[in-house]
């Protein structure tokens, strides 16, 4: 068993375990920490696939930012001790089954190795990916305009989110 398969199995276990904790825990805070574990595992998958930029972004944005946002959101929410209603489970179940079907289809339609990246097919690692991304961002023919529009999108998200948060906060303004 090569080191890559071992790493894949460890990461897969961590990701799935984090997901199970997220879903089954009765405490929302535990769910948030489970989600953190799961997202870290996904970052590990990106490393295995040779995309270190994506892995770092995953850790910086999702693990470091979004989960912290969730934690604050959780602290704002009074604990929900109610039993889950049948209707809620049914709706969630439909979405879960649909996602599972799509995922299984993708897994079984996949060519090449199921863990990690084929040496002759994947991107070269060692900082090459991020340089490629940077060059694509700065290329007029490629993603220069989307790069700038992304900043407008972020601006809209910031203003909108802060506006909604301020109104929901009620007092003060």
């Amino acid at each position: 068993m090569s080191a890559e398969i071992l790493a894949f199995l460890v990461l897969a276990t961590a990701t799935v375990a984090g997901g199970v904790v997220t879903l089954w825990s009765r405490y929302v805070v535990h769910s948030a920490f489970g989600l953190m574990l799961s997202l870290l595992g996904v970052a590990g998958f990106y490393v295995l696939l040779g995309s270190d930029f994506l892995a770092v972004t995953q850790v910086v944005v999702y693990v470091g930012g979004v989960v912290v946002l969730y934690l604050f959101g959780v602290m704002l929410t009074p604990p929900d001790r109610e039993e889950r209603s049948i209707r809620r489970i049914a709706v969630a179940g439909i979405f879960a089954v649909a996602a599972l079907v799509v995922l299984l289809k993708a897994v079984f339609g996949m060519e090449g190795r199921w863990y990690g990246v084929d040496p002759d097919r994947g991107p070269a690692s060692g900082g090459a990916v991020i340089r490629e991304v940077g060059n694509a961002f700065m290329d007029k023919e490629a993603y220069l305009l989307p790069f700038e529009i992304a900043s407008v999108l972020l601006l809209v998200a910031l203003v909108g989110a802060v506006f909604i948060a301020r109104r929901e906060g009620g007092r003060g303004s």
């Binding site: 944005v61 930012g65 912290v68 946002l69 604050f72 940077g134 961002f137 900043s151 948060a165 906060g169």
Partner: peptide, 30 residues
């Protein structure tokens, strides 16, 4: 229940976090 202000600050943080994620490849090829 915590104060809403924590949430607002976290929101602002996430947006500028994403900005860094975009600026990182830019800085490499700068």
């Amino acid at each position: 229940r915590f104060d809403m202000r924590f949430y607002t600050v976290a929101l602002i943080f996430v947006v500028f976090d994403l900005e860094i994620a975009f600026l990182f490849p830019w800085a490499v090829v700068y």
